[in-house]
Design a protein around this nucleic acid. Structure first.
Lengths: 102, 102
DNA sequence: ACAGTAGTTATATAAAGTATAACAAATACC
DNA sequence: GGTATTTGTTATACTTTATATAACTACTGT
């Protein structure tokens, strides 16, 4: 059974990928971390984490179009997988249950 | 402002210290991790984590009496501090808020 | 073609997570 | 009273997460 755990930052990023829907890519995630979680990190921190999440099978990525504005490389868009959803819920439930006992 | 974050295992241990009240020491925590969180770890893992938590000021420890049963060294009992409580609540609220937006 | 902008990859280091093994102190039993 | 046994903590080492800095890639406007 599930031997894998999400680190705390991994969990946060995974939640934000869900929240951002079809606009979940590196820089947008970095921005969302600031807005929704008051977490200021560098872009390298974000990419390192999504790479790990993808390797573990919790998210998938595919290249989207380039930016609508001027300039810019193509975006790498992330979406959560079934097992990603499962582990998010599991992690939430575990904590809710514990808080309930306190 | 709070620059420190709780790792996911740190948060779990901190919650269990609250739950165990005046019986929060190494081996009891290890047992509680199994019971309440289905997490099987070695005792070294637990002690490494509480040492970090104490260094960060989220818990305090003092030596309690020895075991009531036969044998045994004195227990090192842990209690959560005010800043420990604060960070636990902060971490919980942040996640609840995010889940709310999803 | 060059400068600027949007984005990702590569590399390196610190912090968190975890295990194995050693040590310490108390008790029981012969 | 010494030795084996139980309860517990410390020391040490290693792996995985978390994070930063810097380099690279690709597109766009002039």
């Amino acid at each position: 059974m599930g031997k894998e755990h999400l680190g705390e930052f991994e969990e946060l990023v995974l939640l934000l990928i869900v929240l951002l829907k079809d606009e979940a890519y590196g820089l947008a995630l970095r921005h969302a971390l600031k807005e929704h979680a008051d977490r200021t990190v560098t872009i390298g921190a974000v990419h390192g984490t999504v790479n790990r999440l993808e390797k573990k099978g919790f998210i998938e990525s595919n290249l989207g179009g380039a930016s609508e504005l001027r300039g810019g490389r193509r975006k790498r868009l992330f979406t959560i997988t079934a097992s990603g959803k499962k582990i998010l819920e599991k992690s939430r439930d575990a904590k809710v249950t514990l808080w309930g006992k306190i």
